[in-house]
Simulated scan of single mutants.
Amino acid sequence: MEYRHLGRTGLKVSALSYGAWVSFGNQLDVKDAKLLLHRCREAGVNFFDNAEVYANGRAEEIMGAAIKELGWKRSDIVISTKLFWGGQGPNDKGLSRKHIIEGIKASLKRLDMEYVDLLYCHRPDASTPIEETVRAMNWVIDQGWAFYWGTSEWSAQQITQAWEIANRLDLIGPAMEQPEYNLLARDKVEVEYAPLYKNYGLGLTTWSPLASGVLSGKYSEGVIPEGSRFALENYKSLANRSLVDDILSKVEKLKPIAAELNVPMSQLAIAWCAKNPNVSSVITGATKEYQVVENMKAIEILPKLTPDVLKRIDSVVHNKPKQPDQYR
């Protein structure tokens, strides 16, 4: 496994990580989670991602119980969670000081941990001043409940504003952002955030490298395998948006490139994300042991992604963002 600094921080995270979204609590229990987490650690993964909203908190409970039963040394791993959707009450969601403090305390209780390493604002909150959020996240860090704070799916303008507030108040700014990033979703990471890497040392822990499984190639011809994510009732609308002819056609055209490299499509897609030097860690997901083993082998094919291969991939997906002159 390769370990990278989380942006400009001193923290090192595995280039490939594992996230509990969809799987923990919806498809997997503690016993299943233990096996998958064990396989991740065998592959050298040290970063595990979660959120208060995943399975309505059950994902945090499962991860915490599994890690406790596995007997892992807490300092050997990096755990993250995210706050925004904590419940149905008017103050159970958003990024107010009240919800951030109550939310992290509830998450830590579910995880059965004294702290998380990374704490994210899961989405921007238009109804709360960013200064209130910056101050609250710093207070959480001061209490030792989190070591670093960051954002998820914020705009570059919002992240910049948070940093300007933090600098003005001599506080800690967001060290990392967690955006969607894959061969089908590139603009935010490759263009919008471009100034932030240099200006603020922003690190990225990206999610959905397989575009919810589409880039694995398992949805060929729009067929939805039993037990897959798109077979879940809650994800059928996402399936309808994702399994369209244009996208499936691009996936089919990528398969020959993967075959020439002698790797599965899933590994090609994950490695492509990890090839970006601004990505600190690619968060993978899996519900089966063999999927974890296969996904983690993606780190081994990074050297195969030569400039020529990357150019061929770009010619297939045909969505490489145009860089503004000042970013080149």
Rank of each mutant, 00 (worst) to 15 (best):
T284E: 06
V214R: 03
L254W: 02
N278Q: 12
S249E: 15
W163E: 10
E192D: 13
L183E: 00
Y193R: 00
L254Y: 02
S228D: 09
T206W: 06
R241Y: 13
L196N: 03
P256W: 04
N278I: 08
V214N: 02
P209K: 04
E177I: 01
K250S: 05
M176R: 09
V189D: 01
L248Y: 02
L243W: 07
T160G: 03
K218V: 10
S237Q: 14
Y200G: 08
E260Y: 04
E192L: 04
M265C: 12
E233M: 14
Y181M: 02
W163F: 12
E192G: 01
T206I: 13
P277M: 08
T287C: 09
A194M: 13
G203N: 03
L238Q: 14
V251A: 08
A239N: 08
A211Q: 13
I159Q: 00
Q161C: 06
T206V: 15
D187V: 11
L202D: 08
D170T: 14
V189T: 13
F230R: 09
A156H: 03
G173A: 05
Q158I: 02
N182V: 09
Y235I: 14
A175G: 04
Q178P: 08
S216E: 04
E260Q: 12
A258H: 10
A239L: 11
V244Y: 00
K218R: 14
I172V: 15
K188Y: 11
A258P: 05
L215C: 03
S249A: 14
Q158G: 03
P225H: 01
S208Q: 06
L238F: 14
M176I: 15
N276P: 04
L202Q: 06
A162Q: 00
A274E: 00
P277K: 11
Q161P: 01
E260L: 05
N276L: 05
L184I: 01
T287A: 12
I172S: 12
N240R: 14
S280W: 01
V189P: 05
E164Q: 14
S228G: 11
L268M: 10
L183Y: 00
N234W: 14
Y219I: 06
E252P: 09
K218M: 14
K253H: 14
P277R: 08
V223Y: 09
E221P: 06
N167S: 13
N278W: 10
E190H: 05
I165P: 04
L184R: 00
A156M: 06
E221S: 13
